[in-house]
């Protein structure tokens, strides 16, 4: 019995590795990562293909016979026009969709867009948003947000184009 115990003692001899320097280094690394860590706010994005300005025509316009017969003639894109005028402080003042003013703000814009997007008799190639040069980016993003929702609900590809309102268009009532 005593002989057995002696053998076990011999085999239980352990080698202790000093972990303190490793701990020091680990703390230094931890300090570095804590100091360089800057949590970024959650950012999203609206991805779109913006082509240069193309000839545009009204959404209700008929394709001319010459264009229909000859595929080499570039057809004017059937366009759903939207005009955004700036109000006080560059915020959203007036929205004109097609030819009529949207009275109920962004909520009404969404309802009207749903009507356009789900109407099979009104196909269009793009939606052209003509914007007041003074309009703030935050107001524009709110409108893009509504368009994006409408495109998603109608399961259509977002086809947007941007333009700037001319001084004549700005002066028009």
């Amino acid at each position: 019995m005593s002989h057995k115990q002696g053998r076990r003692k011999k085999s239980e001899q352990s080698l202790e590795i000093p972990v303190t320097p490793m701990l020091d280094m680990a703390f230094q690394l931890l300090t570095f990562f804590i100091l360089t860590y800057h949590p970024m706010p959650s950012e999203g994005q609206f991805v779109m293909n913006l082509m240069p300005a193309a000839p545009a025509t009204d959404i209700n316009a008929e394709t001319s016979e010459a264009t229909a017969a000859n595929p080499d003639i570039p057809a004017a894109l059937k366009t759903l026009p939207t005009m955004l005028r700036a109000g006080e402080g560059g915020q959203l003042g007036q929205i004109i969709l097609g030819e009529s003013e949207v009275q109920g703000g962004l909520k009404d814009l969404k309802t009207q867009l749903d009507g356009y997007f789900n109407d099979p008799t009104l196909p269009f190639d793009q939606t052209l948003i003509k914007v007041d040069p003074d309009l703030k980016y935050s107001a524009l993003i709110q409108v893009i947000d509504v368009f994006h929702q409408a495109f998603t609900d109608a399961k259509k590809e977002a086809k947007l184009a941007f333009g700037e309102l001319s001084p004549e268009e700005l002066a028009a009532p």
Binding site: P41, S42, E43, G44, Q45, F46, V47, M48, N49, L50, M51, P52, V131, P133, Y137, L140, I141, I144, D145, F162, E164
Partner: peptide, 22 residues
């Protein structure tokens, strides 16, 4: 913003991503 977008389009960039916070 429109001035920069137009400049990008004139130089061949077509794909854009407008950033916003969620």
């Amino acid at each position: 913003l429109f001035g920069l977008i137009t400049a990008c389009q004139a130089n061949g960039f077509r794909r854009f991503a407008l950033k916003a916070m969620n």
